[in-house]
Simulated assay, not measured.
Amino acid sequence: MEMRKRIMRRNLGLGGLLLAGLVLLGGCNMSLVNLTPETHPANPSNVYTLTLEVNHRSGAVDRESISPQVVIDGQMFPMSPAAVGENLFEFDYRLPPGRDRAAYYYLVRYDIVSDGRRHQREEHSAIHNLAVVNRYALSLEVDRAPAGSRVALVGRGFSRSDQVFVGGEPAETVFESPTSLAFFLPALPAGRTYQVTLRGAESTLNAGSIRIDEGRLRVVPESLSLTTGARRMLVFTLPSEAPPGGLLIPVTTDVPDSVIMPEVIVPAGSRSVNIPIEGGSPGSGNLYVEAAGFEEIIIPVTIRRGDS
């Protein structure tokens, strides 16, 4: 009986040691989170910041002993605590001249303290890649505007072949410099937010989003009364200059035999246009001005016989 008790005690003792070892190993695992973007806009200094977040789940880890390093091209560089944020470490890497990419991984050495003893450990990350791009869209000048507005886009690596698209629709694009473009918001339904993309010969860039607000189109006079054969001018005025190529303003009527008028196109760079209206067959109805991005305007029209 005494021998059986001794065997049981030994087994329990061994099991306890194994369990403690499993807890220690599991609790000391560290997670290394790479917070560095895969692509960086090129900068004149050619210096790019690598950022690592180090997390641990065990009180046995000596926080003061945590020593992160980054290994690039076989060379090891110590990382420093970030100025902002807990458990964050940074290293400013100067990319060698003539290169636009690099591969790297993180190595973290630390100590664990158990039963008064200190043990050294280390963890390493997977291999990460850094690429520097010379073409990117940085920001839009505004985040909302009415249709027809001119909007500036700032970035780098622009060319004359670049084309801006708003909500998938091509926008009239003006090349100003390798770091600046401008485009005119196309006539799209107002009250919505649209994705802005920049398409070039080699790549498509996301330039952000913009909301198209309802513009204020004015038409004067607000009603028409004509005799058959008589003419009068309608003045259409935009809130901003028309884009290159001009802006078509669709106008329809429910009395097509009574109203004779040409298409309404505001010339490029202009804010208004005068359109002649001629009275046709006698009748009464409305003109409907329904340009996308603008509030609908209804103009009552009455055409009388010339001798009445």
Rank of each mutant, 00 (worst) to 15 (best):
H128S: 05
P256M: 06
R160L: 08
V54P: 02
E172T: 06
T252P: 02
L12I: 15
P44A: 11
Y93M: 13
A291R: 07
L35C: 12
V47Y: 09
A60F: 03
M8P: 00
S240I: 04
L205F: 08
I72M: 04
E295A: 14
L18Q: 13
N134C: 09
Y194E: 00
A83T: 10
P250W: 09
V133G: 05
I299G: 00
L217Y: 06
D254E: 06
E141C: 01
I277S: 00
E278R: 15
V219I: 07
R199F: 05
R216K: 12
L107A: 10
S225A: 14
S31Y: 07
V264I: 12
T227V: 11
H124N: 13
M30L: 12
A20D: 01
R232E: 15
P96D: 05
T204I: 11
F77T: 02
G200L: 07
E263H: 13
N55T: 12
T197G: 00
H40I: 00
P243M: 07
L17G: 09
V70S: 03
R271S: 03
N55P: 01
D213I: 13
S65N: 06
P282G: 00
M261R: 10
A152Q: 13
V151P: 00
A42V: 07
N55S: 15
L19C: 11
T193N: 00
M30V: 06
Y105M: 04
P244C: 04
S225Q: 13
L88S: 06
R117M: 05
I303Y: 09
A147W: 05
T36L: 09
R57P: 00
S114T: 08
G148R: 06
G306K: 13
A147Q: 04
L95P: 01
G13S: 13
S308L: 06
S177F: 04
T302N: 02
P37M: 11
G98R: 08
L140N: 03
L140C: 03
M76A: 12
E278I: 11
K5H: 07
I298S: 11
M1P: 10
I127A: 12
G208N: 07
L238A: 01
L130R: 01
H56P: 04
V235S: 10
R121C: 10
P244K: 14
T36I: 04
P37H: 08
G200I: 12
R156S: 15
V196D: 00
L32H: 01
S272D: 09
A137W: 00
L238P: 00
P178V: 07
L32W: 10
G245V: 02
F175S: 08
